[in-house]
């Protein structure tokens, strides 16, 4: 890999930004209702259609994608393992448990309260995962994602059981399968917190990079490792919980994007975190567009599209790199 200079980072950010702008325009233009300026024949006027449905939907995809990719990157830094992300570490499942609890005991709670409780549960669930992951032998890096899958599965099963007992399975389906079709003005604004999460991650980028060198190396460089772990945990949990509450679980973004960016641009997060955020936004917006086009005028949920596209892109990239090597 040739040296990744600041110029190379800037170029990557610029082209990713351009790509995202194109996708956003495309996303705004796609829908059952044709965009027309007249608003004739009872069709919704352009401005309303855009501001009530298409724009919120597109923004939700951009925000969730950027936030989830960054959350995945942080998760990988915390575990020092490239093969984990919030949806395979019990974070998303714990968040769903939180929403379930609120729905059971306080059915009238608004999105904000749901997000808060979900974040708290995600935090607790992820802390348990992390504590266990740190005890696994580092010589066997595959144990961490494996444990994450099992752990996520167990929490997920508990959530399903409780939901089934209380006749809430149809809600569970909404939380566990990411979808943007229900996103309307007034129902997605919490996702703007993703901007804060991304900004905080970029603010801590240098410290996160040092953290990725391992606890001993980071400590000898004077980093407060425990404190950074706590900060990272909060960022990951809040982001995952928000995404589950507002649009439902979107798998693989947090796994695929940081790995691709690492291969293309290296591991110095100061330069790569903006690329991770943009990459996540591109991937989720792109998958949402695909989901709307494949069976037009019907929709395929973004979570489903991602479930196929995410691993597909990942495999293609790894195999391509092996051929080049």
């Amino acid at each position: 890999m040739p040296e990744i200079t600041p110029t190379a980072h800037r170029r990557a950010i610029a082209s990713a930004g351009l790509c995202l702008v194109l996708l956003v325009v495309l996303s705004l233009g796609i829908g059952v209702e044709d965009l027309s300026f007249s608003g004739a024949d009872g069709a919704m006027p352009l401005a309303d259609l855009l501001s009530i449905s298409r724009l919120p939907r597109t923004l939700a995809a951009v925000l969730a994608g950027a936030g989830l990719a960054v959350a995945g990157q942080i998760m990988q830094t915390l575990t020092r393992n490239r093969f984990v992300e919030p949806s395979t570490a019990g974070t998303a499942q714990s968040a769903a448990l939180g929403i379930l609890i609120v729905t059971l005991f306080l059915p009238s709670a608004d999105l904000g309260l749901k997000a808060l409780v979900a974040s708290g549960c995600a935090l607790a669930g992820t802390a348990v995962f992390l504590a266990t992951a740190h005890r696994l032998p580092p010589e066997q890096p595959y144990l961490v994602p494996l444990f994450g899958l099992v752990y996520g599965g167990v929490v997920g099963a508990a959530v399903t059981y409780v939901a089934w007992q209380n006749d809430l399975l149809q809600y569970l389906d909404i939380w566990m399968n990411g979808e943007f079709s229900g996103v309307l003005k007034g129902r997605y604004e919490l996702l703007w917190i993703a901007v804060l999460v991304v900004a905080a991650a970029i603010f801590f980028a240098d410290r996160l990079t040092i953290m990725a060198l391992g606890e001993a190396q980071a400590t000898s460089l004077g980093l407060d490792y425990r404190r950074m772990t706590q900060i990272g945990l909060v960022l990951v949990s809040v982001m995952s919980a928000l995404s589950v509450v507002v649009v439902g679980l979107i798998p693989f973004v947090g796994l695929v994007v940081p790995n691709l960016v690492s291969r293309l641009s290296g591991d110095n997060l100061r330069g790569t975190l903006p690329q991770v955020a943009l990459g996540g936004a591109i991937l989720v917006t792109g998958c949402d567009i695909l989901g709307r086009l494949i069976r037009f005028p019907y929709e395929i949920p973004v979570g489903t599209v991602m479930g196929v596209a995410g691993p597909g892109i990942f495999l293609w990239f790894i195999l391509r790199e092996r051929r080049d090597a």
Binding site: D206, I210, A212, L221, S262, R263, N268
Partner: peptide, 15 residues
């Protein structure tokens, strides 16, 4: 990590 030699030595300046 995937960082350049210069970046890695630069991490030594972190304190």
């Amino acid at each position: 990590p995937r960082v350049s030699v210069r970046e890695m030595v630069g991490f030594g300046r972190f304190p």
